[in-house]
């Protein structure tokens, strides 16, 4: 087996990729997709720890994280649809009503 740190590094790479994706994509949906990436990275981390430390709590937590991710996606996409109806744009840059 590989050392645990390898799984952590893998998770870190995926997580950072997700962060970068949040920062550089223009499309709102791609933003949410990148958030999914981040969530999955944490799932990998949890499961790896659960295996290496012989504690089932890690997997239980993944279960809940999964649940929350699903809920968040549902609501987020609903908001996006509602937003699209009003602004007719998917460009994050144009959603700047909170500008000074």
């Amino acid at each position: 087996m590989v050392p645990l740190s390898y799984y952590m590094i893998l998770s870190a790479i995926v997580f950072v990729t997700g962060v970068v994706g949040v920062l550089i994509r223009r499309n709102i949906i791609m933003l949410l997709l990148s958030i999914e990436l981040m969530l999955n990275a944490t799932n990998i981390n949890f499961v790896a720890f659960s295996y290496y430390l012989d504690n089932i709590a890690g997997q239980v937590f993944v279960f809940f994280a999964l649940t929350v991710a699903a809920a968040e996606v549902a609501v987020g996409l609903a908001i996006i649809i509602a937003l699209y109806r009003v602004k007719a744009t998917m460009n994050v840059e144009e959603l700047n009503l909170m500008k000074w």
Binding site: V19, V22, L23, I24, L31, V92, E93, L95, N96, L97, M98, K99, W100
Partner: peptide, 17 residues
């Protein structure tokens, strides 16, 4: 300082990162 409030979420996310 006012210019920091661009209204764009990704700028804020950048700041957090």
């Amino acid at each position: 300082m006012r210019l920091v409030q661009s209204g764009q979420v990704q700028h804020y996310a950048l700041a957090m990162a």
